[in-house]
Computed example of a mutant assay.
Amino acid sequence: MAPGAWTDARGFAALDDFERKTGRHQAVFHSYHRGVRQLFPTEQEMAIARQPGRERILLINWKPESTTWARIARGDRRTDEFLDRLAAYWKQNFRDRFFLAIHHEAEDQVRERRGSGYTARDYAAMFRHVVDRLRANGATNAVTVLIHMAYVPHTTKSWFSDMYPGDDVVDWIGFDTYSYSDPGYGHGDFAELLNRRSSLKPGWPGFYNWVRMHHPSKPLMVAEWGVWFSKRNPGHMAEFYREVGQQIGRFPAIKAMVHFETPGNRKGQDSQVDSTPAALREYRRLGKLPVFQVAVS
Rank of each mutant, 00 (worst) to 15 (best):
E105M: 07
P202I: 03
V296H: 12
L286G: 02
H259S: 13
L134S: 01
Y241F: 15
K231S: 15
T144H: 04
K267G: 14
K201N: 14
T262F: 06
L220V: 14
Q109D: 15
P202F: 08
D171P: 01
Y164F: 14
W159L: 00
W225V: 00
E43R: 11
W225G: 00
D122W: 05
R197V: 07
H129T: 01
R285P: 00
V273Q: 03
H148S: 10
R212S: 08
G23I: 10
Y32K: 01
Q92T: 12
P202C: 10
Y180W: 12
Q269F: 06
A223P: 06
F229A: 13
Q109E: 15
R284G: 06
Q247F: 04
G245W: 01
K63I: 13
I57W: 09
Q269M: 15
Y123R: 07
A9L: 12
Y123P: 05
H236A: 04
I60L: 15
T68H: 06
E192L: 09
H215C: 02
I147K: 00
P64Y: 00
T7I: 12
G249V: 09
Q246C: 04
F82W: 03
W210D: 08
R113W: 08
D76T: 01
Q38D: 15
G245K: 04
H214S: 07
L15R: 04
R54Y: 08
T262G: 08
L289A: 14
R111G: 02
R114W: 04
A191C: 06
N141M: 11
A49D: 00
D182T: 12
K21I: 15
A278T: 05
G188T: 04
W225L: 07
H104Q: 13
A73F: 03
E112W: 03
N209C: 05
R77I: 11
S297Y: 13
P202W: 05
T42P: 06
G226R: 00
R50N: 14
D162A: 13
W90Y: 08
Y164R: 02
L58F: 03
Q92S: 11
V258R: 04
L58V: 08
I147G: 01
W228G: 06
A238T: 05
L194G: 00
T156W: 04
G206H: 10
A73D: 04
L83Q: 01
R197L: 06
V227Q: 02
G23C: 09
G23R: 07
T7A: 09
T119F: 03
V170H: 03
G75P: 13
T67K: 02
A70G: 08
F82C: 03
I254N: 00
L59F: 15
S275N: 12
D132K: 10
E65T: 11
H154V: 07
